[in-house]
Amino acid sequence: MSDRLTSTFSALRDAGRTAFIPYVTAGDPDLETTGAILDALAEAGADVIELGMPFSDPMADGPVIEAAMVRALANGTTLDGVLSMLAGFRARHPSVPVVLFGYMNPLLRRGVEAACQALADAGGDALLVVDLPPEEAAELTRPAKARGLDFIGLFTPTSDDARVSRIAEEASGFAYYVSMGGVTGDALKDLDPVAARVTEVRALTGLPVCVGFGVRTPDDAVRIARFADGVVVGTALVDLIAKAAPGEAAAAAGRFVRGFREALDAL
């Protein structure tokens, strides 16, 4: 398991704090800006950063993140470009863990061994591959773990106890609990069943449980923090970056994260 993720979650637990995990798509609007955004996220108090590797056919994402991926690809963003931007961030911020989010095909195209090596070399800590259920995960988790990369398991409202345990066999780092049956950016629904299930997933997996999908405001995050170990915010931040004036995206992203950070720390 990644040392950075382990020490981050154990420090949060000791301090009784909730992890705040912002997501951004690499290369939107361009990689140089993404680098500046990552710095702003880290400096504003992001505990872990989720970095989206663009894919042409992001089936599990809603229109906002899909559009961000399309923009990133249209301006020539490549996996090598993303990793070299990440290596720059890693040199500036040695301790903030980065989870690389994406789809299987670009990793398969590179070769899973080579892809995992390149991700680890660039300072990545974990992989979250949305179209890789546990039945298919071994082909990626083996090379990932051999290089110290965690494989973040996706747990959903449709995963029963047997599946939760099955996913946990392949997963490490933390558990990502999807708040609803939907895609990124859909509206958050009733949180009571989410709270109950998060507690069960934590007990079944022994992992910290972070909740994502549908979290838009600091108030949403606070409600989730009452039962979860971490909160992931993606679409709302990607939307903010898309609408920011040229040159303003990093500063806006930093303010956005500080809003969440302050609300969570006031708990």
Partner: peptide
């Protein structure tokens, strides 16, 4: 072949 889908669809 195989089943490369989001976990949410797997039970289905």
């Amino acid at each position: 072949g195989g089943r490369y889908v989001s976990e949410i669809l797997m039970p289905n």
